[in-house]
């Protein structure tokens, strides 16, 4: 018997006006699984992630995350979103708050913790991403890599059941990428379920359980990293992998 998937998205369609961006995507993710999503620009990777926590409203389909029907109008979406962390390419830290302020805002205002409780949890989260000593710094005083780690701390402080990463290292200088990937690796080792859109093929090879290749709004093929990278079944996958490996 296969365990109940923690993310179960079925037949997701998304239209932006006349543009059909997702054309019936099915994605199941098991608990503790790390799914790595690749595909050409515009293939719908970000849109898929954003549908999963309903930052984007799917045109049709069904999405169940951790037993919660995300598309049911009766679902308290703000409550559900606490269980789904999201990390953005551009960090999106709140520039007018300290690192600790960024991490504790939702703890206080959504999870209802007192300031003291939230601060303790916030410090612990910053510690996990190696930034215990940067709690009082504002985003402007931090490097890109540090900012992205604060953003990760902001998500994990809420103890999500799933984490979504949308190109978390694409905006970083090459020498800062490693520190963010290291945090992601340690998260994975702690058993976090993760869906990662990224071009970091090295990370995919040694950290992903499964690689999903998307093109033109559809999942073309998926499988273990070695299979997808070494022996892709589809011509489009082969062409895409060849293209990024030439870089």
């Amino acid at each position: 018997m296969t365990p109940q998937p923690i993310v179960d998205a079925r037949a997701i369609h998304k239209h932006f006006g006349a543009l059909h961006v997702l054309k019936g995507v099915d994605l199941k993710v098991a608990e503790r699984e790390l799914v790595f999503v690749i595909g050409p620009s515009g293939s719908g990777k970000s849109t898929l992630l954003r549908c999963l926590n309903r930052l984007e409203e799917p045109s049709s389909g069904s999405i169940v995350v951790d037993g919660i029907d995300m598309l049911d109008p009766r679902t308290d979406i703000n409550h559900a979103r606490q269980r789904i962390g999201m990390v953005f390419q551009s960090f999106n830290l709140y520039p007018h708050m300290t690192a600790l302020g960024n991490v504790t805002l939702a703890l206080r205002k959504v999870a209802g913790k007192s300031r003291a409780e939230a601060d303790a949890l916030g410090h612990a989260a910053l510690e996990r991403v190696g930034l215990a000593d940067r709690a009082e710094h504002t985003p402007g005083q931090l490097s890109g890599g540090q900012q992205q780690r604060v953003a990760i701390a902001r998500s994990i402080a809420l103890e999500p059941r799933v984490m979504l990463f949308d190109e978390p290292t694409s905006a970083l200088d090459p020498e800062l990428v490693g520190s963010v990937l290291a945090v992601m690796r340690s998260l994975r080792e702690s058993g976090m379920t993760m869906i990662v859109v990224s071009h970091e093929m090295g990370f995919a090879r040694n950290a992903a359980d499964r690689v999903v290749f998307m093109d033109d709004g559809l999942i073309v093929e998926q499988g273990p990293p070695a299979a997808i990278f070494e022996t892709p079944a589809h011509e489009r996958t082969r062409a895409f992998i060849g293209q990024i490996q030439r870089h």
């Binding site: 703000n78 979103r81 606490q82 962390g85 999106n92 709140y94 939702a106 809420l158």
Partner: peptide, 12 residues
């Protein structure tokens, strides 16, 4: 992106 970051953590 500022609003999206907040909403993704459950803020109304």
């Amino acid at each position: 992106g500022q609003v999206e970051a907040g909403r993704s953590t459950g803020l109304s």
